[in-house]
Design a protein around this nucleic acid. Sequence first.
DNA 1: GAAAAATTGACAATTTCAGTCAAGTATTGT
DNA 2: ACAATACTTGACTGAAATTGTCAATTTTTC
Lengths: 139, 139
Amino acid sequence: MRLSTKGRYAVRAMVDLALHAHEGPVSRAEIAGRQGISADYIAHLFHRLQRAKLIRGVRGRSGGYLLARDPAHIRIGEIVRAVEGPMALTDCTVPGQETVCPRASRCVTRALWLKTAQAVAETLDSVTLADLCRQATES
Amino acid sequence: MRLSTKGRYAVRAMVDLALHAHEGPVSRAEIAGRQGISADYIAHLFHRLQRAKLIRGVRGRSGGYLLARDPAHIRIGEIVRAVEGPMALTDCTVPGQETVCPRASRCVTRALWLKTAQAVAETLDSVTLADLCRQATES
DNA sequence: GAAAAATTGACAATTTCAGTCAAGTATTGT
DNA sequence: ACAATACTTGACTGAAATTGTCAATTTTTC
Ligand code: FES
Ligand code: FES
């Protein structure tokens, strides 16, 4: 039941990006340095975040990354889902994968896994990137 | 963010046990046969469930396992925690492990992971073994 | 045109998962 | 008594996921 480093790093990197992207793109090297995460690893995470349209990559010299949306409209759940895939506690509760368990229709536990994953999603979606940034600056 | 088979198997096995233990202990072989789970694997799961005082092992011929408590007082969360360890999305949110992250006191994401794990625990603890059994029989 | 930086894919070390196997202990039916 | 049954426990293994690293490529700017 652990979140992988992908999810944790991605959220931290996004907070860092939100706090420093006010003027121009932020490079991986800067974020990696501040957050103590490998720059090469961040590349993969940001690739996924970009596919999810949460950030935008700017190439070339003095390039880097920018948020694609206002931090107040980026929910933490979106970040986690982007790098970790759909939130589901079992394969058979992933949307579109209902047929993995042969007896899914009779399974008494399935509804519970579904409900639990929903609780996780709701919790993570109840917080925005702006919320975390505010918390980070007011310390 | 997946639950391992330990958690899923343990819950299924406990439901099976609750449904069949009315008269005498149930052996691993019976449960394994009905649920399609390896009997040897169940041994390990039940060992942990026993340490958590959720079931009781009865040795010798015609032995097996019995529930240690009334199904109405066994919460699914207890079963999952017994086989998967404490519910935490990160190592630094495991009770007693707060020092894993050097900057835990300043970390803005930690509170969110804590809150999320709590949501999972509450959801799983809101359902009892008796609830699942009722659902299984009324189909 | 050279340097900086993102893009992308291949690859490797480590850890976790899922399950097997076996040796040992306790109990019971006959 | 004793053989059969069944739990107990630890060691071990193959497969998969995790967590990165590295290099080649493309794009842009100074
Ligand atoms: S766990 Fe997949 S249907 Fe029951
Ligand atoms: S993730 Fe552990 S303290 Fe921030």
